[in-house]
Design a protein around this nucleic acid. Sequence first.
DNA 1: CGCCACGTTGAATCGGCTCAAAACCCGTGG
DNA 2: CCACGGGTTTTGAGCCGATTCAACGTGGCG
Lengths: 218, 218
Amino acid sequence: MTIHTSMEFRSATLLGTGAGTGFEALLPASPLQPATLYSSGSEIYAQGEKAGDLYQVEFGAVRVYRLLADGRRQISAFHLSGEVFGFEADKTHHFFAEAIGATGIRVMRPHAGIDFSRELLPLALQSLVRAQEHLLVLGRQNAAERVAAFLLDMAARQGDLEEIDLPMSRSDIGDYLGLTIETVSRVFSRLKEKGIVRLPGLRKVKIVRMHTLRDMSE
Amino acid sequence: MTIHTSMEFRSATLLGTGAGTGFEALLPASPLQPATLYSSGSEIYAQGEKAGDLYQVEFGAVRVYRLLADGRRQISAFHLSGEVFGFEADKTHHFFAEAIGATGIRVMRPHAGIDFSRELLPLALQSLVRAQEHLLVLGRQNAAERVAAFLLDMAARQGDLEEIDLPMSRSDIGDYLGLTIETVSRVFSRLKEKGIVRLPGLRKVKIVRMHTLRDMSE
DNA sequence: CGCCACGTTGAATCGGCTCAAAACCCGTGG
DNA sequence: CCACGGGTTTTGAGCCGATTCAACGTGGCG
């Protein structure tokens, strides 16, 4: 279940998108910090495991989720290049984290220095605000509004380019938005029919009428 | 709209439930820190206002929420006695906070000291985990499961007493759980019929079969 | 005592789900 | 180069749970 290949890199080659986030201070002293390659679907950590480390996405994407006893899944967040995840309130993971497609992850083991919390707090707060916005979507928006909000969020996190990559499957999107894959698919089709988006590939979306999407998500 | 009465207290008289949370360090130096009384429904802060201060509930309860353009409301959290709220990622409030019933609030203006982040991070992380658990409820649970999870959460935060107080209205509960008041009411009635809870008052719930509720919320 | 906001209950509607089948994409091998 | 195969996505039909709309009950307070 947890086939995860490990692979060493020279950080200089890989840093790229990860640089400039201002968290280099958290990295261990070595300037050649190795990263790990996770193959598609492999587990980064599991619910119940000991927590403490943080993770930064080098490339690829990650889904963080919980399961109910009967298998229902709620993805609480996706993490893209450069983003840091793995925060927990206590020393145990309450969620699962898996790679979406081949993904490079840098592990950061923060030694509890003085700067530690000062660096982390803004990141934790950003995650908090994201989660709270997501609550509004899940609690009070219909299927079309949810998908619109999702596309706008993904676009914003990819620099507001009109053509965005969706590394995740329809099933992932459904489990993120609290919808079934069929409903997600139907909304995508309707957005295409109405000329609001184009779908040049299964995992590519070109946003044609950004403002219409914004109106939809209110 | 923002009728909010202000009233001075001697902190020694009021601290009570607020003590022992370990955040006295954040309070200004004065040992007689005044608290403020907010009347039922009055606004503590509004979306768009400048943020920065934190707030600790002395007594009463607070709802934190966002609105959609058409008036739909999502309550992202309730805060009870002793709890700290008001975190934001940037220097602007993205949510509204209102008193539920008469509520005493202690304002904490943390001067950006070294300890600041170290004290705040665990609080922020607790809020984050709560929000993420809430996502699972809103995204993947049905009406009965949502109400069960809500009652268990409220019970846990009131020391796992069998008789719990619900300071908030059915409308607040609905807007917290992503349901209508009618659905909330129907679920309460069915829980009562089945002998899982008793409803000795409109805002009191006696949990008779805790384990059944736990099974329901999975 | 009577008012009025809040809460409960009922009937009909509707949005998203379930179940089912067809279409599509893409890697593989002939 | 094309045919094959398996997984993902799309589309369709019918169903069901939560909502909407409406009426009635209730309890808290002046």
